[in-house]
């Protein structure tokens, strides 16, 4: 079970949170101008990488705030959380290689 850091409440058990998938997908400002393919890409298609992943979590059983997490999808190591609108923490190559936070 993961340990997730809520930017407002601190580190808590994963059971307090829900993950809502890839972060930073921006809703198109001009849906009418998009082709069906472009719209479908926004609604359904995800990068789903095996590696570093920026994803949205919400602290359901806490402050109910949404935030972003950088996590490695193979090691499940979490490299940090950040509030919406904030830049993602940088993850050094060394940290990744060593499989350490």
């Amino acid at each position: 079970m993961l340990l997730i850091e809520c930017p407002w409440c601190g580190e808590r058990d994963q059971t307090e949170f829900t993950c809502h998938g890839e972060a930073h997908i921006v809703r198109p400002k001009n849906p009418d101008e998009l082709t069906d393919e472009q719209w479908g890409d926004y609604v359904f298609f995800r990068s789903n990488p095996k590696g570093l992943h920026k994803e949205r979590w919400v602290h359901d059983h806490g402050c109910r705030r949404w935030f972003n997490v950088v996590r490695h999808t193979h090691t499940d190591i979490v490299y940090g959380s950040y509030k919406p609108g904030e830049p993602a923490p940088e993850v050094s190559e060394e940290a990744l290689k060593g499989g350490k936070k």
Partner: peptide, 14 residues
């Protein structure tokens, strides 16, 4: 299934 992307073939205990 868990609702986070993971390739670890593990998942969480909860």
């Amino acid at each position: 299934s868990d609702n986070f992307v993971s390739y670890s073939q593990r998942g969480s205990f909860d």
